[in-house]
Design a protein around this nucleic acid. Structure first.
Lengths: 242, 242
DNA sequence: GAGTGGTCTAGACCACTCC
DNA sequence: GAGTGGTCTAGACCACTCC
């Protein structure tokens, strides 16, 4: 024991990473250093077992996880190869409006302009995949950051899939979160465009002059069915994504 | 053998899914049906081993993969629980401009307005994290869809990290893909806003009148270092994301 | 037939939590 | 101490590719 054993204890060895993590790190290091460029063939599992003295299941787990993460490609009967680099997914994460506002240190509140059942007109019927005239729910909210309007949320909701929608409390939670909490395994489809404010947008977002706005259209699926579609409009000078 | 055995052969049984996939499907079905709501405790691995007659490693793999996918949460020494539903990531995938244009069935080409080394001014130095006056590369391209300008790409590139940048061929590949092909394990950071076209944008994108534009700023990291930053401007009436 | 990766098992040891 | 999940092994059988 060295004389500074109390200190040594404080330093507390990082617990050694599991073997499969060590193998993953090793492979990633070889890839990022350029030792193993794209399409390069890796040693076989059997070879790695011999060379590293690690069991095949452990090697296999490491390589499988790197494959799932997009770094490798494996072909049964052939071998393991470094994946071409496009594999890095360029995703933009979309967060809830109230969380974004709170993360900025501001106060969020939501004004409900209307929240009602109505028969679907042609547009709404298309948006949410019901027949024209079917009853749907519609909500029309404006979200504020410290009393300045930041987002107009115009939402259609399926009355058959989510009959309780009108009774939700939208002051504590967003519509989006109410829907997420109600259904398991939702999927989302987004579309983002830029658009100059029109009379409707200018009115509800309190814009003096024509302003470029971000318009995000989001459709939410539960399995094969559309639960909700939302049009969210942000003034470009007050908000940006990402 | 039934009399239509040739047909039976043609039908070709789907090969049975691996056991761990069957376990995953079973658990997902229980979750999405509502049998196992959020925070619900799952049977222990040992219990599943007994009940299903499947070895623990196989059960464990199924539950681990569902955990990685965000459906479950596991606590060592405690148990396995259904994850609260927020887990569904709402991501927007950002694709390469030339691929988007070709996917629309249009023709892509790129006009190079300039491509040069220059000393970093204050803005550029901040964008790419070098010192003012350091040499950097700058490219200024316009991408066309069938001869209509669709995107202005103003890019700064680190001359130390990517000295070959000026010699790349940008007619066959995009700048973004050149960079991706050059480095392994890049990460990207995006910022999207709406902005009214100014004189510069109107000129290069051939806009007659003030137009709302999508502006995407993208920073590309190689480990701790910034390889490139790009400002990409799309006219809102010609393009939308997603 | 030799080599590859894909799956699965029965057992082991461990760290951790809860009692 | 009993129960939990986390890791690891040594072996097995398999489907697949390439020769």
């Amino acid at each position: 024991m060295p004389k500074n054993s109390p200190l040594s204890k404080t330093v507390s060895y990082a617990p050694p990473k599991p073997l499969y993590e060590q193998v993953k790190s090793y492979v990633l290091k070889r890839i990022s250093s350029g030792d193993w460029p794209a399409y390069c063939r890796l040693p076989s599992e059997h070879t790695m077992v011999k060379d590293m003295g690690i069991s095949r299941m452990t090697i296999h787990r490491a390589l499988r996880e790197l494959t799932q993460a997009g770094f490798l490609e494996r072909i049964q009967g052939v071998g393991t190869f470094v994946a071409p680099i496009k594999a890095v997914p360029k995703n933009l994460e979309l967060n809830d409006i109230d969380q974004v506002i709170r993360a900025r240190g501001s106060k969020h509140h939501c004004k409900i302009h209307f929240l009602q059942a109505e028969p679907a007109d042609t547009d709404a019927a298309n948006l949410i995949a019901v027949s024209e005239g079917d009853q749907i729910f519609r909500s029309y909210f404006v979200h504020y950051e410290n009393d300045i309007p930041l987002m107009l949320e115009d939402r259609h909701v399926s009355a058959t899939l989510f009959p309780e929608y009108l009774e939700m409390d939208f002051h504590d939670s967003t519509a989006d979160r109410c829907i997420s909490n109600r259904f398991a395994l939702l999927s989302h489809e987004h579309n983002i465009q830029a658009k100059v404010s029109d009379a409707e947008i200018s009115h509800f977002l309190a814009l003096d002059a024509a302003t470029a706005c971000l318009v995000i259209n989001c459709r939410t699926w539960f399995g094969e069915k559309i639960v909700s579609t939302a049009r969210m409009v942000y003034p470009g000078d007050r908000y940006h994504l990402g």
